Simulated assay, not measured.
Amino acid sequence: MSYKLYKSLFLLLVISSFTSVNAQNIDKLKEFFTFYPNKKAVEKDSTLYLQKFIAAPVMSYAPETNFAFGTGAKYLFKFNGSGEETRVSNMPMTLQYTLNNQFFLYSGFEVFTNQEEWVIEGNLLFQNYPRLYYGIGSDTKKEAEEQYDYYQFLIEPIFLKQLFHRYLFIGAGFRYNSIFKTEIEPNGLIATNRPEGFDGSTSVGAEFAVLFDSRSNILNAQDGWYLEFTHGLYDKVLGGTQKFNLTRIDLRHYIDVSKENDDILGLHIAGQTSRGNLPFSEYSFFGGSDIMRGYKEGRFVDRDMFATQMEYRKNFKDSRLGLVGFIGAGDVYHNIDQFQFKNLKPNYGVGARFSIDKKENLNLRLDYGFGKNTSGFYLSIAEAF
C-alpha cells in the first residue's frame, strides 16, 4: 500500500473519530459561524425564507495544490416574494492559500429570481496557480513534468430566462479570461513547444447558453436532471488576443435508489470542444477533484475532451456519515472525431462523507481516486458533481 494511501486512510480515521465523538456539537459549531441577515423580518413574516450567511475557516487537499487553508463563505437566500416553487440561491466564495505557494479566490454562483423567471449563474476567479505541464496530447509522459506559473483573472456571468418549460432556461452572457505574469522553466518543455498563448493571453467572448435544471437541491442533488450547454465566440474585436470558438456541455442525472436511506446514483458526462486560434489557457485540462479523480488536473491536455463518471452515494439512516464509490473514463483529443472506446483512460475510487449541514444537505468530502498508474486523495466541501 502506498504512502499516499496510508496518509488518506489515516486522515479518514481522524475525521471519522472526531465526528463520531462530537457529532452532537456540529450543529452548535455551525450556528457559531452562521449569520441570519433577515432574521427580524422572518420573525414578523413567517412566509419569508430565512437567509443564511455562513463564513468559517476551511481546509482542502488535492494533488495539484497540496493542503490549502483559508476562509469559505456561503450565502443562501431567496428574494422576497419567492415561495416553495423557487429554489434556494447559492453564492459561495472561497479564499485559500496552498502549501504549493498558490492562492485562489473563487465563486461559482447560481441565483434564482422570484418564481424562477430568471437564473443568473457564472464564475469569478482570481488566482496565482502554478500548474504542472507534461506537453499536449493524450500520450504525454509523466517523466516530462515541469511547473509553470501564472496569474489568472476570470469573470463569466450568464443571464437565462425561463422559456417553454418549468425547468428550461435560455440566455446569454460573456466570458473574460486573462492570463498574465507567466513564468516558465528556461529551455524547458513548454519553452520548446511554445503553444499559442503560453506567455499570456486574454480571451473575451460572447456566450449563448441553454440550461435545463430540475434538481430539487442545488448543493447536493438527490434527484432530477442538469444539462448546461454553452457556446462562446471569441474575437480580437472584443479585446481578446486570439479568435476561436469554445463549446462546453455538462450533463448530470440523479436517481434516488433507496427511499429508506436516500441512497443516490449519480451520472455525469462532461465535454469540451474548440476550434480556431486557441490559446493554451482555453485547452481542455484532464483530471482534478471534480471529474477523473486520481489524475492531476492537466495531466493530459488537448483541444477537446470527453469524460464521464458514475457515483453511488450510500447514506445511513439517522447518521451524518456516508460512503461513496465511483468509476469513470475519459480522454483528450486534438479533434473529438478521434474518439475510440478502447483508448479511454479509466478511473475509480472510494470516499467518505460527513454531513455538516443536514438541512441544506451539505457534506464534507474525502475521496481517494485511482487512474492509470496514478492516484490521489481529495478533501473538500460539497460533492464532485
Rank of each mutant, 00 (worst) to 15 (best):
P63E: 09
F341K: 09
Q147P: 10
S16D: 10
G72K: 02
F104Y: 15
I269D: 04
Y148L: 00
R194A: 06
L278Q: 11
P195K: 03
K236V: 13
F18I: 04
A206N: 07
F53E: 09
I26K: 04
A191V: 03
L163F: 10
L124D: 06
Q147E: 13
G287D: 08
V14D: 07
S258F: 07
Q96D: 06
Q127S: 09
K4T: 15
L132G: 15
A41N: 15
I136D: 07
I179D: 12
F354V: 00
F69S: 05
I158L: 13
E383R: 07
G371E: 12
K28D: 06
G294I: 01
F67E: 08
L95H: 12
M310T: 15
R131L: 14
Y49R: 08
K40Y: 14
R313I: 12
T192S: 10
S214K: 12
W118R: 09
N38M: 08
V257C: 01
Y295F: 03
L267I: 12
K44E: 15
L12T: 00
Y106G: 03
G239K: 07
R353Y: 02
A329K: 11
V21C: 00
L321T: 12
Y234F: 04
N217E: 06
F300P: 01
F244I: 08
E31L: 06
H268R: 13
Y254Q: 02
L321D: 12
H268A: 04
Q51P: 07
P92R: 09
S355N: 08
R131D: 15
K39Q: 15
S274I: 08
A73F: 03
N100A: 14
F33H: 10
Y3W: 15
K181R: 13
G205M: 05
S216Y: 12
E117W: 13
Y49N: 01
Q127C: 06
G322D: 07
S16R: 11
K236D: 07
A68L: 05
D213M: 00
Y148N: 04
V204T: 00
Q115G: 13
S178R: 15
G271N: 07
R248A: 02
G325Y: 04
L125V: 05
Q338P: 13
K161A: 10
L168T: 07
R248H: 02
T182K: 03
L9Q: 11
K141W: 06
K78F: 11
G328L: 02
F339V: 02
M1D: 15
Y295D: 06
Y283F: 14
E282A: 11
A384K: 09
N177E: 02
R320Y: 13
K314P: 11
K358R: 05
L344D: 04
F10I: 06
D45L: 01
I26R: 00
P346W: 10
E143S: 14
N343W: 11
R353M: 01
F300A: 02
N38D: 09
F10H: 14
R166E: 15
I184R: 13
T230N: 06
E31T: 09
N128P: 04
F69G: 05
V237F: 11
H253M: 11
S355D: 03
Y312A: 08
F316L: 01
E383G: 00
A382Q: 15
F159C: 00
R293T: 11
L29N: 12
D262Y: 14
S281H: 00
